[in-house]
Design a protein around this nucleic acid. Structure first.
Lengths: 331, 331
DNA sequence: CTGTTAGCGCTTTCAA
DNA sequence: TTGAAAGCGCTAACAG
């Protein structure tokens, strides 16, 4: 199969050597301006584009970074992926993406595939992965970072926020406003170490502060709706619902609206994520802002400086914070 | 830079030739079972993985498909991308993704980069692109398809739905229930030929059926909220609002909720997209279902059969349909 | 500043 | 069924 036009054609056209052409294509400085000009013109004329595979074979670099995420349908991931892509783009890297559906075995397979596709580095979500995945990456010396979590003791570098602490703060915030019976709704524990960290954080706050009850459901608006319904109809007079995702909180809003239960006068709601519409719901949602975009930018930036300039990857803790709006009342 | 282990190492280990090893790695049939076994064992033992760049250089194929989308933060795109990724994955292709922010120049740049990265095919959103982009793809004979639109006369194959017709149907549906003054809220016309097609479709239905007034806004919940507020406070007694996206409709719900205007008894709302939560809002949203996942699957499938088996890409029209729920009343 | 040349690791005729 | 060898297009010493 004949490809499009090679460096040789440009060399021929200009009467220069392939080495010189290569230098120009790579922005080397040791080329005379006139020569550079000549080469560039020939490139236009021949519509020449360097062959990436040949380049990758020579340099052992693909300028491609892989990200594996549990799902893309949750907008907090969408934001994060968008930030990664934009940042990679600026430095002329490309993003290859795979979706694991929060399944460790699937994730391992995806990773093998992307490795077999030549990814220079990996971005993983969360701290828990198939053991073999981390081994594989280490054996092949492929740089990787774990995101959305903060685990300074993890062997792999993490860039993210402290889910445990943030959930703890949320409970303390609620307790501080007099809430003593708090319902917590969250997505599948088995699927997410972030969710587990949040749960343990909530429990860590529980020093006689408040009674906590956990409701596990699907991580969807519908799931939130179901759970809130269950919460509203239980015997226990909960005064607040903490949702480990704004998506769940939105479902709670709908459920309460159906039941004509007023937020926050009859029950308070607090979320997690600070999605775009969280400030637009009625009443505006008090929630925890997660630095999704910033995290995407940060991880991309660090991986690139590591790849291009050999800088080390620094474990980094990104701040999250409570955004006070109007869905939580004192009791 | 030394790579990890080459086909030569496996050849050495087994005492076979690199040709034979290559055959095994590619699942060729003309290899004796014993030999195959021997090779496979050596691969495990040496932790060998074929070098993708070398392979791509030899075959002139990267098994990588590029998708450029306007934004990933709208969940209809997220669903669609997820479907593409899953389908590619099954056939052992990888997805490289770029985001254009609905800007034709940016899109062209992204495309050049991805081309320079070796993508075997391109998936574009919408019908309108930088002229040079399509030229480039054609010159280099890179297969590509335009999605989310249905334009049988376009030179490039389209796989998608008929935005014009769907919007027309929406107006007819509303008019059929007695609505004569309909407000239409939509995102930026300049950014999306799909939006323009929908607008023209709405106008095409306008045979004395109804008075239509268009409100352009940002494609966000906030934008929908603003527009609905404007609509509610205008002189004209609109009886229905058609939103060209469920995201906008959600904003309208919030706005109307704030103003204590009941849906649908005081005003009807109709959406477009059928997002996950559309059935969960109160009242459930009548909307137009768009085959986002199916479209993703279809486009991936066709591109792969074209690449792998030389089958032609068929322009295909995917059906959308009105989902009747409870946000539209007769008048 | 420019040219020569030896690979990079794999696939693929062509022979055997 | 297996092997030998000629590339694929580019980069990177090294030489000049």
């Amino acid at each position: 199969m004949k490809s499009f036009g090679s460096i040789r054609d440009v060399a021929k056209e200009t009467g220069l050597s392939t080495a010189t052409v290569s230098r120009v294509m790579n922005g080397a400085t040791n080329v005379s301006p006139k020569t550079r000009e000549r080469v560039l013109n020939a490139c236009k004329k021949l519509d020449y584009l360097p062959n990436p595979a040949a380049r990758a074979l020579s340099t052992n670099r693909s300028r491609t970074i892989a990200a594996i995420i549990p799902t893309i349908e949750h907008s907090v991931f969408a934001k994060y992926i968008a930030a990664i892509e934009q940042t990679l783009d600026q430095r002329n890297y490309a993003l290859v993406m795979a979706i694991s559906n929060a399944d460790h075995d699937l994730e391992l397979n995806e990773a093998r595939k992307l490795l077999g596709m030549g990814a220079d580095a990996f971005i993983l979500s969360g701290a828990d992965h198939h053991e073999e995945l981390i081994n594989l990456l280490n054996r092949r010396k492929v740089p990787h970072v774990l995101t959305s979590v903060w685990e300074p003791d993890n062997e792999s570098p993490t860039i993210g926020y402290d889910n445990h602490s943030l959930a703890k703060q949320a409970i303390e915030y609620l307790a501080g406003r007099g809430h003593e019976r708090i319902a917590i709704v969250h997505g599948p524990l088995a699927a997410s170490d972030r969710t587990r960290a949040r749960k343990s954080g909530a429990l860590a706050a529980d020093h006689m502060l408040a009674d906590l009850k956990f409701f596990e459901t699907e991580l969807t608006v519908e799931g939130g709706k179901h759970s809130a319904r269950a919460i509203a109809t239980t015997e226990i007079p909960f005064t607040a619902i903490l949702c480990f995702s704004d998506v769940l909180a939105l479902g709670a809003y709908f459920s309460l609206q159906e039941a004509s239960i007023d937020i926050p006068s009859q029950i308070s709601i607090m979320g997690f994520d600070n999605l775009d519409w969280s400030s637009q719901v009625v009443p505006p949602l008090t929630t925890i802002n997660l630095p999704a975009s910033r995290m995407g930018r940060e991880v991309a930036r660090q991986l690139i400086s590591h790849l291009d300039d050999g800088l080390p990857i620094r474990k980094t803790l990104l701040p999250g914070e409570i955004i006070e709006r109007e869905s939580v009342a004192g009791v």
